[in-house]
Amino acid sequence: MTVSHTAAGAAHSPAPAQGQRQAALQRWLAGLGLDPARLRAIPGDASLRHYWRLEAPARIIMDAPPAVEDTLPFLRMAWRLRQLGLRAPRILAADTAQGFLLLEDLGSLDLKGALDQGADAAAWYQAAIRAIVRMQAGGRRYAAHPPLPPFDVERLRMELDLFPDWYLQRHLGLALDASERALLENTFAKLIRNALEQPQVWVHRDYHARNLMCLDDGDVGILDFQDAVLGPLSYDLVSLLLDRYWDWPADWLDARIQDYLDLARKAGLPVGDDARFRLQLQRMGLQRNLKIVGIFARLNYRDGKAAYLDMIPRFWGYVRTAAATDPDFAAFSDWLARLPAPGEGKS
């Protein structure tokens, strides 16, 4: 999950870090001719990184402790996206040993904020879809060195296991019997096969409204791309369309899927026929949203971020709908229907 470069804190933050790290960051910024006292904190989310905004000149500072995160994947992917003409922030300075980055500021209006203010949802989603297609098509032409990590069986399974480990067992307190474990194994195998059978392209992995900045020229700026992988064609589109913020009408979603298909075909992407792609997209959504339900439970129990439990019902609805409308998942759908609804389990 992520933090977006949205509006900064209401007051100047007294310190950008604690102890020795605070002093190191202040020295680094001073060496760049920047005044640490003028930083404002950018509110965090589920990320272990910290972000700060500097005004006049407008800059973003990323603090990613090396013990927590390697900044090289972020630096590499920022460069790659910009090579494709996408609006990732420019890297203005970097200290990879300490985990400090100075970034271009893409503004404070993300897609969530823009739509909350009444912006044209279809127009901005079309801009976001154009960026997906540009990334996918460009990534097929451009050989990344080192290559992006593959979204392989191990990685897909690790994500899916979040659902039984953290939601079913930790949150609901269920002890799965042999038949239930077999049902999950069968379901997960089908979802993994669906992902691996799709054309493999560059995948952002967290492509949603808080990571997309609405720029003045109508394009979208892209953030939080350091976990990019080589993975299934439908992944980023379903991340965009089925998010935590809005329940779009079915006909609106269908129109956005068609926007993607039209642009993808023009770009030469191997999307196949419409019906097959839509089925792949639906199953990709089932995989991703099972993972999200598990992640949100983990954020509560492991990280003490209880607000994420309140977000589970929307994603639970996505899971139920996807399973209930796919005959290959009828048994799984019937089993889900017997589980407590979100809010009825342990809290």
Rank of each mutant, 00 (worst) to 15 (best):
T6G: 09
A7F: 04
G9Y: 06
A15R: 09
Q18I: 10
Q26R: 13
W28L: 08
L29Q: 03
G31N: 09
G31E: 14
D35M: 09
P43E: 00
D45Q: 08
A56W: 10
A56R: 13
A56L: 15
D63N: 07
P66H: 00
A67E: 15
P73K: 00
L86R: 06
R87S: 12
A88F: 09
I91W: 02
L92R: 15
L92F: 07
D95Y: 10
A97W: 03
L101S: 05
E104Q: 11
G107W: 01
D110V: 01
L111H: 08
L111R: 01
L111P: 14
K112V: 06
A123K: 01
W124V: 02
A127I: 01
A128P: 15
I129R: 02
A131R: 07
A143Q: 13
P150F: 00
F151V: 01
E154F: 12
R155S: 15
R155F: 11
F163W: 05
D165W: 02
Y167S: 02
G173E: 12
A175K: 07
A178T: 13
R181S: 08
L183C: 14
L183E: 13
L184Q: 03
E185N: 14
A189R: 12
A189D: 12
K190R: 14
K190I: 03
I192G: 14
A195F: 03
E197R: 07
E197F: 08
Q198P: 15
H204E: 08
H204D: 05
M213N: 00
L215W: 03
D219M: 10
I222L: 13
F225Q: 02
V229Q: 05
V229D: 14
P232T: 02
L233D: 11
S239E: 10
L241N: 10
A250G: 11
D251I: 09
L253K: 14
R256L: 05
Q258M: 11
L263A: 14
A267Y: 00
A267L: 04
A267R: 09
D274F: 00
F277K: 07
G285C: 04
L286V: 13
N289C: 01
I295V: 09
A297C: 12
R298V: 04
N300D: 07
Y308M: 07
L309N: 10
P313V: 01
R314K: 14
G317D: 08
V319M: 15
A324Q: 07
A330G: 12
A330D: 15
A337S: 09
A341E: 14
E344S: 12
S347R: 15
